[in-house]
Amino acid sequence: MDSITHTLFGLTLYGALKTEKETKRYNRALLVTAIGASQIPDIDVVSQFWDTQGLYQMWHRGITHSIFITPIWAFVFWGLAWLLFRIKDIRLFFIAWLAVFIHVTSDLFNAWGTGYLEPFSKIRITFGTIPIIDFVFWIIMLGAFIIAKRSSIPSQKVFRTAWLLVAVHIAAQSLCGYIIYEQHEENYEKIALSANFIPYHFTVIGKKDDIVEIVEDNLFQSEKLLYTLQSSENADLDLLFRERPEAKTLYEWAPFVVIVDNDKHLGLYDPRFYRNGQSFLFEYIEKKGQLDEMHVKN
């Protein structure tokens, strides 16, 4: 999920747990814990500043998003609560643990996926049933803040209801995505799913031999073929991997790729993020420049 959604998750968790029976200092510690722990797995973005081997694609949403690391993050925020607020309460440890768990688990539902089982498995788990930015989440949680402020309903009840609605939305959208995935799976050798910003609308990306098809589908309308792409499966990628380490990382990270080998470029891209004739995850080298460089060296 995006940073705004994770922040809203933290604030909604705080609203669901805050109580007037506790001291202001405890509630401040609770606020910092809920928001901070909801964000902390994304600290891996700093790795791009020292990445010289093109491994950022693997590092981002990698070990920091592992289910096995969640108690370590929880311990960090439990310690911070004591250092910053002098609150040593085991409840904050479990609240931090819950916040981190929500973060890393919700990211599983995006097309990007996470290293949920690292370091014991390098498999990127992705369901692709929830978009990275899900406006339904925003509407539910922002609606809860408005209701909590303007109504006489206890705020804890409002925010807990919001969490229930979030869970129902995830379950309903994921069930819809699963049905669509099953309908298309027999047509391809490899298949991936990516949720659209419109609720219950999905993009199905399927590969068979050297052909990749991108299809838009939902349970309420007929499917629509958006793109047919051809992958140059016999291309020699050694030079590409040598010159652009990011390309090798993308090749290993993505469920499958489209390989481009024409007069201008040698490269590959992730078709899950293909929009308007291009994918923003595209790693390539200019052929003319590389050939000239090889000629000079010879």
Score class of each variant (00 low, 15 high):
Q278S: 15
V168S: 03
W73G: 02
G10D: 03
F202H: 02
H169W: 15
L31D: 06
K224N: 12
A172D: 09
G115C: 04
T23D: 10
F94L: 02
F220R: 14
L13R: 00
Q290E: 15
L225S: 15
W73Y: 12
I90T: 13
T203C: 06
L250D: 13
Y227K: 11
I205P: 05
H103G: 03
M294P: 01
E118Y: 00
D44T: 08
V215S: 04
N187L: 15
F94T: 01
A148F: 03
W50L: 13
K88G: 03
K157W: 07
S47I: 14
S279C: 14
N196M: 14
E233T: 13
Q290F: 11
L83F: 06
I285H: 07
I4N: 03
H201R: 12
I139R: 00
A172L: 15
Y251D: 10
V212I: 12
P71Y: 06
K287M: 10
N276A: 13
S121N: 10
T114V: 04
D238K: 14
K288M: 07
F9H: 09
F85C: 05
R61Q: 09
E223Y: 13
I4S: 06
F159R: 10
M58R: 07
V212F: 04
I102F: 05
V46N: 09
S106P: 02
M58K: 10
S231I: 13
S38N: 01
F120S: 07
V45K: 12
G277I: 12
L17C: 03
D210P: 05
R86P: 02
Q156L: 05
F93I: 08
E185R: 15
F85M: 02
I67R: 01
E182N: 15
N110Q: 06
G289C: 11
